[in-house]
Design a protein around this nucleic acid. Structure first.
Lengths: 224, 224
DNA sequence: CCTACCGATCGGTAGG
DNA sequence: CCTACCGATCGGTAGG
């Protein structure tokens, strides 16, 4: 749609503006959510007038999609790279995953799914869901699969859980960690006597791997 | 504010209407979130005209607060009752907690904190935060504290985590479970060979208690 | 408990 | 890339 007009500015300028809009929209959508961000807020944050957004993007929903397309591509590359480091242990790879997720200012996963269900058109919903699965869920799941394969993690039929469920537990805990001031503040206070406990990320991974119970699990064996 | 007018209806009718509004508002706020729910939607769902809401409640924010006041009172009673069942094991009590949380149609915790930070006035934010801590966090935390006290769970200085962090991990995982179709659908598919795995709630509690690793935790001992 | 209506703001368009 | 503006809808009020 852009650059088919006779009085168009040089390509660089137009591209630059488009990128400024995407960047501003990214920050605002992640901070406030789809509905709370107005097109006028995006325009002001990117230094243009509001109707210009509709020269670069068909509508607000499309702008939201383009933001996610760009960000998920970056996240996918980073997470697949971490997942592929077979030389590193499972805890190390998980730590790097969580570290990346926190550093990328992703919004809360619950809010993302909420927006998917309630604010997006059906085809947009399907596209965004696919982007999320490919870029976030798949790489992390492959780490858990690797853990089961190498015997570090229990297989689902040996008292373990499905890799996909493990991924969702990790993602939901970490995204709540970033989203809720309450939880984040709580974790900052935790200056325990143990080294890893000063780092909430390590504490969470520690629980997912080794649990909280004193004794190893005493559930009835699976092949009963 | 209500019932100080000369032509007021009988007390029962007015109370009934107020309750109908609260019930409709509860369902809508939990399903769609504060911002997405309009006062006109609440009015229609409770069978009254929109301006009537302002006879019973000062504004939209106050209506939201009253909904939470009522619901957290119910939740608090239920959760404190479960936490007090000292005859039941920690896993059993946790299972009942999660079962209750899922049955009460609570919204996603991430969305709740998001609304707290971005949609509420400061004093409303403080009140709602207090309600949440007293009604949800405190009772569940007391179960984890009990687990450490009785030796079923590892103490924070013995390779365990703070009870409060355990509570947030449980709450965030469970609330994502209810909120994301994605995750819920995933868990329905899980028909493993192991009994507890057919129940996603048991699987989540199992991981929090016993972890996913084959071997007990091999982190450096804490008193080093 | 209602009808009628307000100022503000929303996403998006016209026209250049 | 802008000014000007649209129809719709929002939370809330006037007045009875």
């Amino acid at each position: 749609m852009p650059r088919d007009r006779t009085d168009a500015r040089p390509r660089a300028d137009t591209e630059e503006t488009r990128r400024a809009i995407l960047q501003a929209a990214h920050n605002l959508f992640m901070e406030l959510g789809y509905r709370a961000v107005t097109t006028r807020m995006v325009a002001e944050a990117s230094g243009v007038k509001q109707p210009l957004l509709y020269y670069h993007f068909a509508d607000k929903e499309t702008l939201y999609l383009e933001v996610h397309r760009e960000q998920t591509a970056i996240a996918r590359a980073a997470l697949e790279r971490i997942a592929a480091r077979k030389g590193e242990s499972i805890p190390e790879r998980l730590y790097h995953v969580v570290h990346y997720l926190r550093q990328a200012n992703r919004q809360n996963m619950g809010i993302f799914f909420h927006e998917l269900r309630h604010e997006m058109s059906p085809q947009m919903r399907a596209t965004l869901r696919e982007l999320f699965l490919t870029s976030f869920v798949a790489p992390i799941t492959s780490i858990f699969e690797d853990g089961i394969r190498t015997g570090f993690l229990r297989a689902p039929d040996r008292g373990g859980i499905e890799p996909r469920l493990a991924t969702y537990m990790l993602l939901s805990t970490v995204s709540s960690l970033s989203a809720s001031t309450e939880m984040a503040a709580e974790l900052q206070v935790n200056h325990g006597t143990c080294l890893y406990k000063q780092d909430p990320v390590r504490a969470i991974i520690h629980v997912l791997l080794y649990g909280m119970a004193t004794q190893p699990f005493t559930m009835p064996p699976c092949s009963q």
